[in-house]
Amino acid sequence: FHVTIHVGDITFHIHGVSEEEVKKLEELVRRGADWREIKKTIEEIEK
């Protein structure tokens, strides 16, 4: 999957994300995680 996440003024683009990881990111966004937490999760996914 290709994912784009907008957190305030920050936009993250992630490529090659599995469905499971998409759900993890959706959950973070849904519970209102700040951009640092989302960035950390994205960095883990990209490894």
Score class of each variant (00 low, 15 high):
residue 1 F to D: 07
residue 1 F to P: 08
residue 1 F to K: 12
residue 1 F to M: 12
residue 1 F to T: 11
residue 1 F to G: 12
residue 1 F to A: 09
residue 2 H to Y: 11
residue 2 H to K: 04
residue 2 H to F: 09
residue 3 V to R: 03
residue 3 V to M: 09
residue 3 V to C: 06
residue 4 T to A: 04
residue 4 T to C: 03
residue 4 T to P: 01
residue 4 T to N: 04
residue 5 I to L: 08
residue 5 I to V: 08
residue 5 I to S: 00
residue 5 I to W: 00
residue 6 H to T: 15
residue 6 H to A: 09
residue 6 H to M: 12
residue 7 V to E: 02
residue 7 V to W: 12
residue 7 V to G: 02
residue 7 V to R: 03
residue 7 V to T: 05
residue 7 V to P: 00
residue 8 G to Y: 02
residue 8 G to N: 08
residue 8 G to I: 02
residue 9 D to K: 08
residue 9 D to S: 07
residue 9 D to M: 06
residue 9 D to L: 08
residue 9 D to N: 13
residue 9 D to C: 09
residue 9 D to G: 14
residue 9 D to Y: 09
residue 10 I to T: 09
residue 10 I to V: 14
residue 10 I to M: 13
residue 10 I to N: 11
residue 10 I to G: 04
residue 10 I to D: 11
residue 11 T to W: 09
residue 11 T to L: 05
residue 11 T to E: 07
residue 12 F to C: 05
residue 12 F to R: 02
residue 12 F to E: 01
residue 13 H to D: 06
residue 13 H to N: 04
residue 13 H to I: 10
residue 13 H to T: 08
residue 13 H to Q: 05
residue 14 I to M: 09
residue 14 I to K: 01
residue 14 I to R: 01
residue 14 I to V: 13
residue 14 I to Y: 05
residue 14 I to L: 13
residue 14 I to H: 01
residue 15 H to V: 10
residue 15 H to P: 01
residue 15 H to A: 06
residue 15 H to S: 07
residue 15 H to L: 06
residue 15 H to T: 11
residue 16 G to N: 15
residue 16 G to P: 04
residue 16 G to A: 11
residue 16 G to V: 15
residue 16 G to I: 14
residue 16 G to D: 12
residue 17 V to P: 06
residue 17 V to Y: 14
residue 17 V to I: 13
residue 19 E to A: 13
residue 19 E to H: 13
residue 19 E to V: 12
residue 20 E to T: 11
residue 20 E to C: 06
residue 20 E to K: 08
residue 21 E to P: 01
residue 21 E to C: 08
residue 21 E to L: 09
residue 21 E to F: 13
residue 21 E to V: 14
residue 21 E to Y: 12
residue 21 E to H: 14
residue 21 E to I: 15
residue 21 E to N: 14
residue 22 V to T: 06
residue 22 V to P: 00
residue 22 V to F: 13
residue 22 V to I: 08
residue 22 V to E: 02
residue 23 K to F: 12
residue 23 K to N: 10
residue 23 K to T: 11
residue 23 K to P: 01
residue 24 K to M: 15
residue 24 K to D: 05
residue 24 K to E: 08
residue 24 K to H: 12
residue 24 K to S: 08
residue 25 L to V: 05
residue 25 L to W: 02
residue 25 L to M: 04
residue 25 L to K: 00
residue 25 L to E: 00
residue 26 E to C: 08
residue 26 E to Y: 11
residue 26 E to A: 10
residue 26 E to W: 06
residue 26 E to H: 13
residue 26 E to T: 14
residue 27 E to H: 07
residue 27 E to Q: 10
residue 27 E to K: 08
residue 27 E to G: 09
residue 27 E to I: 08
residue 28 L to T: 04
residue 28 L to R: 02
residue 29 V to R: 04
residue 29 V to Y: 06
residue 29 V to F: 09
residue 30 R to N: 14
residue 30 R to L: 10
residue 30 R to T: 12
residue 30 R to K: 14
residue 30 R to I: 12
residue 30 R to M: 12
residue 31 R to T: 10
residue 31 R to Q: 13
residue 31 R to A: 09
residue 31 R to G: 11
residue 31 R to H: 11
residue 31 R to V: 08
residue 31 R to P: 02
residue 31 R to S: 12
residue 31 R to Y: 05
residue 31 R to C: 06
residue 32 G to T: 04
residue 32 G to S: 05
residue 32 G to W: 03
residue 32 G to F: 04
residue 33 A to E: 06
residue 33 A to M: 03
residue 33 A to P: 05
residue 34 D to R: 04
residue 34 D to E: 05
residue 34 D to G: 07
residue 34 D to C: 05
residue 35 W to A: 14
residue 35 W to E: 13
residue 35 W to S: 11
residue 36 R to H: 15
residue 36 R to S: 15
residue 36 R to A: 13
residue 36 R to W: 14
residue 37 E to F: 01
residue 37 E to I: 03
residue 37 E to M: 01
residue 37 E to G: 01
residue 37 E to W: 01
residue 37 E to N: 02
residue 38 I to W: 02
residue 38 I to V: 09
residue 38 I to G: 00
residue 39 K to F: 12
residue 39 K to S: 13
residue 39 K to D: 06
residue 39 K to L: 15
residue 39 K to E: 13
residue 39 K to M: 15
residue 39 K to A: 15
residue 39 K to V: 12
residue 40 K to F: 07
residue 40 K to E: 15
residue 40 K to Q: 11
residue 40 K to D: 12
residue 40 K to H: 13
residue 40 K to C: 07
residue 41 T to I: 14
residue 41 T to Y: 15
residue 41 T to R: 11
residue 41 T to F: 15
residue 41 T to L: 15
residue 41 T to D: 02
residue 42 I to F: 05
residue 42 I to A: 03
residue 42 I to M: 07
residue 42 I to T: 02
residue 42 I to C: 03
residue 42 I to D: 00
residue 43 E to S: 08
residue 43 E to D: 13
residue 43 E to L: 13
residue 43 E to F: 07
residue 43 E to N: 09
residue 44 E to S: 10
residue 44 E to Y: 07
residue 44 E to G: 13
residue 44 E to V: 09
residue 45 I to Y: 09
residue 45 I to S: 04
residue 46 E to P: 06
residue 46 E to M: 12
residue 46 E to K: 09
residue 46 E to S: 12
residue 46 E to C: 13
residue 47 K to V: 12
residue 47 K to F: 10
residue 47 K to D: 09
residue 47 K to M: 13
residue 47 K to C: 09
residue 47 K to W: 05
